[in-house]
């Protein structure tokens, strides 16, 4: 059970049960939808971007414990960050869950998000953890394009909302 408890840690179970920032955000100027058709995970990320800062970040959606906890902790981690800092967290998180970043051996800014390192040992679950991040990333990138665009092989679409 040691491997299992590494994936389903108390913090993850808690965020699954009581997701933070789990609401539609009135006044959001970026809205992105993430969808994994293979498993049915679906979420919408709401972002208020102001002068290069992620002022507010929230989400709604359905998914497994891993995806819900990843989305919940992501909103906490990214809120208040600059676009560049959010980009760094996205890159590091993605490299962690795909096994490219050794969070214990290499410098990183993941902090509490390191709790998701165990996901790399469950290849079938990597997309559960990364879907919210891909969706948030699409919202971040949204400024460069005012059209709805397909930003991933199978994951996200984003749009600017006026």
């Amino acid at each position: 059970m040691s491997e299992l408890s590494e994936l389903y840690q108390q913090v993850i179970l808690d965020h699954n049960k009581k997701p933070r920032n789990f609401q539609k955000l009135e006044g959001a100027n970026r809205v992105s939808e993430g969808f994994n058709p293979l498993c049915g995970d679906q979420l919408t990320v709401y972002m208020l971007m102001d002068e290069g800062l992620v002022r507010e970040l929230s989400f709604v959606g359905t998914g497994c414990a891993i995806s819900k906890a990843a989305a919940s902790m992501m909103t906490q981690a990214v809120k208040g960050k600059t676009r560049e800092e959010a980009q760094v967290l996205f890159d590091e998180f993605h490299r962690m869950v795909t096994g490219e970043l050794d969070v214990e051996g290499e410098p990183n800014r993941l902090g509490r998000l390191k709790i998701f390192a165990g996901v790399r040992d469950y290849p079938a679950r990597v997309k559960c953890a990364s879907l919210p991040w891909h969706t948030m990333h699409a919202a971040l990138e949204g400024e460069e394009s005012v059209t709805t665009e397909n930003l991933g092989p199978d994951l996200t679409q984003s749009a600017i909302v006026e």
């Binding site: 299992l4 414990a65 891993i66």
Partner: peptide, 23 residues
């Protein structure tokens, strides 16, 4: 109740039981 089938699948897998989960 309250548990997504993919989480069920992962835990059963750890217990040595293979099931399918999904659509």
């Amino acid at each position: 109740d309250e548990v997504h089938p993919h989480d069920v699948g992962t835990i059963l897998d750890q217990e040595g039981i293979a099931i399918r989960a999904g659509h």
